[in-house]
Amino acid sequence: MTAAAHEAQSPHQDLHESTGVENRKLAMWAFLSSEFLFFGALITNYLLYVGREFASGPKPSEIYDIPFTSVSSFVLLMSSLTMVLAHNALSRGDQGATRTWLLATAMLGSVFLAGQVFEFTEFITLENMTLATNPSASAFYVLTGFHGTHVAIGVIMLLSLFGLSKRMGGLTNRQFLNLELVGLYWHFVDIIWIVIFTVVYLLTAVPGAS
């Protein structure tokens, strides 16, 4: 692993890395720390409107389908596990297993996305809650929408890695770092969802309203 990371280091840089963390990984950490605030602001924004009353309804907290979202959250949580398995497989050098787990992760992510599309459709068509119903609904759609976009980008990155591995007959040491970076990103998106699910769904859901 360390050897892989070392080789992946950009070749123009004959200086040592003062932190011992590869450049691109450090960059990813920095980027993700920024993303934490991005979602932090979105979640705060949603919470601000939770307790307020609006002329037109419903509010998302009144129509959550908690059992359904629990299942899709579980699916996303499992995708983190398969991501770890992919990472493990590649560090063992098992290219076939890596591909399998990468594909599994992408599939689980897609199932989650499909769930979100289903949820949005239900809210819009059955519950009549659109982006423009009230500020709480706006905040809900923008928050979960941005999260969904992040998941979608993650799925695309996973599929690209899968495709690359398929075409080249495996991922090289240099690409090991790419897999690690995608993994970092994927776990981040997952963790954010756990927070969203807990804070935005479970804590604000109005019991029995649905």
Binding site: L37, A41, V142
Partner: peptide, 26 residues
């Protein structure tokens, strides 16, 4: 990231009908 969110909210309010800053809608 915070200004990004705030600017998205403005753009969404102006272009896509969200109601973040519309006092008449709460």
């Amino acid at each position: 990231p915070i200004i990004a969110i705030a600017l998205f909210m403005v753009t969404f309010d102006r272009q896509f009908g969200t109601l973040f800053f519309d006092a008449t809608a709460g």
